[in-house]
């Protein structure tokens, strides 16, 4: 019984060790497998080389861009994340390499500006609509004839015409 217990414990221990090893293997990056073109291009498509302006790095045909893609591949093999690679390229070549400017300094204008303008436009539109609707909402007061308005004028006009008729 005592011997069986030890055997059982050893089997359980071995099983746990193997499970742990298997688990550890799955968390490690695949070794010996270079990153595919798609993996490299997935990072490269969000970057621009300063030599070929307005051409994304993933489709840029120049030698300089090819070297940059190779560099991305090297960094991926070393286990770098996309963010680390972006940071490295910004450090080496400046913000211009990024497809979207970093959220810092005056760059915030680009991100906040459109929303501020949209909000301002929405407020103006809402005010305009409210103003247009406002008169229809309440009953309109009947127009008050002016004290010495049309009636007085008509009376004077008729009197003048009568006077002219009499003259004739």
């Amino acid at each position: 019984m005592k011997g069986r217990g030890w055997v059982l414990l050893a089997v359980i221990g071995l099983a746990l060790a193997l499970t742990g090893a298997a688990g550890a293997q799955t968390t490690e990056p695949p070794s010996g497998q270079p990153p595919t073109e798609d993996e490299v291009n997935a990072i490269a498509k969000n970057m621009y080389c300063p030599v070929c302006e307005n051409v994304p790095l993933d489709v840029c045909p120049t030698l300089a861009c090819q070297q940059w893609r190779d560099q991305i591949r090297e960094k991926l093999i070393e286990g770098w994340t996309e963010e680390q690679i972006h940071d490295y390229f910004v450090l080496q070549y400046g913000d211009r390499v990024l497809a979207a400017p970093p959220r810092s300094g005056l760059n915030w204008l680009i991100y906040i500006g459109p929303w501020v303008l949209i909000a301002a436009g929405a407020i103006m539109l809402a005010r305009l609509l409210w103003r247009l609707r406002a008169p229809a909402a309440g009953p309109e007061p009947p127009p008050q004839p002016p004290a010495n308005g049309p009636d007085d004028y008509r009376a004077r006009l008729e009197a003048e015409l009568k006077r002219r008729d009499l003259k004739d």
């Binding site: 300063p50 910004v90 450090l91 080496q92 070549y93 400046g94 913000d95 211009r96």
Partner: peptide, 8 residues
């Protein structure tokens, strides 16, 4: 010789 860091 050195790299033009940040193309500055």
């Amino acid at each position: 010789n050195g790299p033009d860091l940040g193309t500055r």
